[in-house]
Amino acid sequence: MFARTLLFRLSTALVTLFGVAVVVFVLVRVAPGNPIAMMLPPGATEEDIARLTALYGFDKSLPEQFVIWLGGVLQGDFGTSITLRQPVDQLVLSRLPATLELSVMALFIALALGGAVAVIGARRRGTGTELGLDLGSAAVLSIPDFLWGLLFVLLFGVLWPVLSISGRIDPRIEFEFATRFYVVEGILRGRFDVVGSTLAHMLMPAMALALPLAAMIAQVLKQNLKEVLRLDYTNLSRVHGFSETAVILRDALQNAALPTLTLVGVQFTFLIGGTVIVERLFAYEGLGNMAIDAVINRDLPLIQGIVLVFAVLFIAINLAVDLSYALLNPRLRNG
């Protein structure tokens, strides 16, 4: 049963990816701007232009171009970046770890902050503390991630410069990376100076991405907690002498987490979307930052590659959310 569900999900994922590929392929080509024009110096001859156009296959019809590109993709060839003159898959894979580490750190911050605020709010329900937390999270929620980013740059980069505002790691650190997962590799190889520097660089962009999501988690989880805390099984735990905090953590949290999870899944994909601007803001060498360059330079193969990777990420996250339901909810395990 489980295997069948998974198979179904994977096949729908393939259809989705194909759709994304078609849309992106067509969009970047009908949008104004000529990639060839961006590559040639002023004063290039008609002949040069025609040669280069033919080289990249832009002289063929749209469907023809698509079939050629898709044929390549199916064989693992995502084309060559026009501006960087390197295979797209290599470029994308070299940047993806940076974005993954940043997004996951932001997700952890959002879960920890939002979860803590929700638990405190539920514990102090009906009091001024709850009201204060509600107002606070509403305020946090109304400010978008890139504004938080700007605010942090101003506060901790300029006025009180304690954190680095650009890059991914202190360039003075000497370390031969075998992978691009700086944090993971730093931990595994016991180089905590590397881990520390990377985390310090990630802290501000991750906070900027995390705060709106944290506020949303705080509100929704607290509401769900309050509903669960009215149910009889929490009353039974109180009669058994457990403190209100223990009742929240032992009985209510897992039950309240279930409906919150859907939200976290959807919002996490938005968070990853947010990396595009926030990475740019902090000159963080991730996929989002590369995406902006690719769009500015009309680097069509690179844009396509990046968008496909984002699409795969989103699908994977939604699948992970669905699977974690079964983990948290025994009623779904045999379904």
Binding site: N235, H240, G241, F242
Partner: peptide, 27 residues
């Protein structure tokens, strides 16, 4: 509140009304 809770738990217990909502569904 703390002493009350401990005292009550040692002396009294509850048979709740609705068995469908009186057991934690995830445990």
């Amino acid at each position: 509140p703390v002493t009350r809770r401990r005292t009550v738990s040692k002396i009294a217990s509850l048979i709740p009304q609705d068995p469908l909502t009186a057991l934690n569904p995830v445990r």
